[in-house]
Design a protein around this nucleic acid. Structure first.
Lengths: 120, 120
DNA sequence: GTCATCTGCAACCAAACGTTGCAGAAAGTG
DNA sequence: CACTTTCTGCAACGTTTGGTTGCAGATGAC
């Protein structure tokens, strides 16, 4: 009911650069910070910090490959994040529906009780 | 395909305090900055700034009521935000499914080509 | 062995979130 | 009308966060 979301996980996917990062790794498979820096308009260090954030909340996992550090998405954790998005979305959606229904109900009640009055 | 989200709208709902603000106004109807400050652990000024941000992206609209400023949610814009959440979520969800299917397909192909080899 | 490249750390800048403090304006009360 | 209350808005300040540059260390490639 209270949208019980994990604020850490949400703020991790709240950043646009981190979302693009997840998109890239999702579509092209695991990659290193240097490899990813060539595909986003930010420096390698910024990417590394974002990957550290994503790693801290478990959205990616890192594996040393030679002298590179390969980052891949954690599918289970990303699925959890997706579920939270859907949760908040559906919560708001439900409230919007309830408000609309309540407004219509009030309108109908007003129509029946004062049906001979002004209807503007 | 490219998750084409509006970064302004997303970052507006990315802040936890702003999400709680939207929750409160959604559940209890339009309210003023002072009224809301009693229900969140932040000062009135912080609330006012957040409401300004939400107003800038059109998620709330303000109406002067006496000496107060009443903020109410813009249902159409919030519905748009909900749609974006669902959009990103389903995009990632689809990619997760595709990855899983690809992995299973590769596994199956490996099984048929080297079916007499080790199967660990 | 040397060179290239990938990593990590530190310092620094700018924007965002939050605070305190204060002045102005509008409603309520004597 | 005068006084008080309370709600608003603005300004200054501190802290966190996203981003940069610069540099030193480590590891694979030649």
């Amino acid at each position: 009911m209270t949208t019980a979301v994990d604020d850490d996980l949400w703020s991790a996917i709240g950043d646009p650069t981190r979302r693009k990062l997840l998109d890239l790794i999702l579509s092209d498979g695991p990659a290193s910070a240097s490899g990813l820096s060539g595909r986003l308009p930010v420096t390698r260090q910024a990417i590394a910090k974002h990957l550290a954030v994503l790693d801290r909340v478990g959205l990616v996992h890192v594996a040393p490959a030679g002298r590179e550090m390969q980052y891949g998405v954690d599918e289970a954790q990303l699925a959890r994040a997706v579920a939270q998005l859907a949760d908040v979305g559906s919560s708001w959606d439900a409230r919007l529906r309830r408000i609309k229904q309540l407004a219509e109900a009030l309108q109908a009640a007003a129509d029946t009780s004062t049906n001979n009055d002004k209807k503007e």
